[in-house]
């Protein structure tokens, strides 16, 4: 399928609920919680008997920590039951920690039957060169493995096939470069096996079967980076999926109260009377601490609202996840998964 020609040729259709998407790429600026969102999305997708693979490529073993399991090997490992649907029917989440070196050796064995040569390459420093020294090659290997997991073919005998693959991808600042590395490669290799492999990977990444989701916070820099990231992805024809606004704090004051708080116009005496009724000693320090905090909160809410508008202008479906007060544990992941599903992502 070729991209259509309207102004946002690569936006996936939100009404389709991502049903045709097999590869969900989750990116976000550092500190926005992209790994948490990727994990929650995998749980949400693994419903009604569906099987989902969650991949990480940054060598952090973040999945193992989030799901409280042993560090993951280079092998697809079942780590959790998915989120149950209305009839209590769940699916499975498998996880894969992709490291470049294993991916290279596997690739050589799978495509070239280079068992022995693989070891020799290692001895000659080729493996080290390819996986750590040579810029770019790492990303080729990592994206290549993700491609293989999505497009399972007969070479990988007996391997699981998945209804969806979720990739916890590099951060927004690097995502276009990371996903487009095969495009660059295709530019270098005019013909040959590398070229056709690179073309196949880019065909998948550019197709409607892929959706690239960007995680952000309602703060200026992450939002700016998200908007820039969307533009960059579009400029190289990579399909932007959704924006997920993460760690959103509930608003505890109505608009009128916020407006008053912003101008420090909340009534101290009323507040003191309330505190009194609530059984607290309404000292001056407590009252002024609450009023200071109200003003800060109003400033923040105003900033968040502005940022929400900026996100909306990007013309991409948007989802929202709350900040969980105690941080995210396994239970919290399911909670976030349910929230995503309710909003239509992962249905």
């Amino acid at each position: 399928m070729s991209p259509s020609t309207d102004s946002h040729p690569t936006v996936a259709d939100p009404t389709a609920d991502w049903a045709g998407v097999q590869l969900h790429v989750v990116t976000g600026k550092g500190g926005t919680g992209k790994s948490t969102v990727a994990a929650a999305l995998a749980l949400a997708l693994a419903s009604s008997g569906r099987t989902v693979l969650l991949c990480e490529v940054e060598g952090r073993q973040g999945i193992a920590r989030m799901f409280d399991v042993d560090p993951l090997p280079y092998a697809e490992t079942k780590i959790a039951r998915g989120l149950a649907d209305d009839r209590g029917h769940a699916g499975s989440v498998y996880a894969l920690h992709i490291d470049a070196e294993s991916a290279l050796l596997e690739y050589l064995a799978m495509y070239y039957r280079l068992g022995r040569a693989g070891k020799t390459l290692d001895k000659f420093g080729v493996t080290e060169f390819a996986t750590t020294i040579a810029p770019g090659v790492r990303d080729v290997l990592l994206t290549g493995k993700v491609f293989e997991a999505v497009e399972r073919n007969s070479r990988n005998k007996g391997a699981m096939t998945y209804d969806a693959v979720v990739l916890d991808a590099p951060p927004t600042g690097r995502i276009a470069q990371f996903l487009n590395v095969n495009g660059e490669l295709a530019g270098l290799a005019k013909v040959g096996p590398i070229r056709s492999q690179a073309d196949r990977v880019m065909t998948l990444f550019r197709s409607p079967r892929t959706a690239i989701h960007l995680v952000t916070l309602l703060e200026e820099m992450p939002v700016q980076e998200t908007v820039d990231g969307i533009a960059e992805l579009r400029s190289i024809d990579l399909p932007v999926g959704a924006v997920i606004t993460n760690l959103v704090r509930p608003h505890e004051l109505d608009e009128e109260a916020l407006a008053a708080a912003a101008e420090r116009g909340l009534d101290a005496e009323d507040l003191a009377a309330d505190l009194d009724r609530a059984g607290l000693e309404a000292t001056d320090t407590l009252v002024s601490a609450l009023l200071d905090q109200a003003a800060d909160h109003a400033t923040r809410v105003e900033l968040e609202n502005r940022q929400r508008e900026v996100v909306a202008e990007a013309g991409v479906p948007t989802y929202t996840l709350p900040q969980l007060p105690g941080g995210v544990d396994l239970g919290g992941l399911y909670e976030l998964a349910a929230t995503l599903k309710e909003q239509g992502l992962g249905r």
């Binding site: 000659f124 290799a189 013909v191």
Partner: peptide, 21 residues
């Protein structure tokens, strides 16, 4: 022997043109 093996493997994977570049 190892040297030849590596060169052969690289040619096979990269193709002669890429290797040459």
């Amino acid at each position: 022997a190892g040297f030849g093996l590596v060169t052969a493997a690289m040619t096979k994977i990269l193709g002669t043109q890429v290797l040459k570049d």
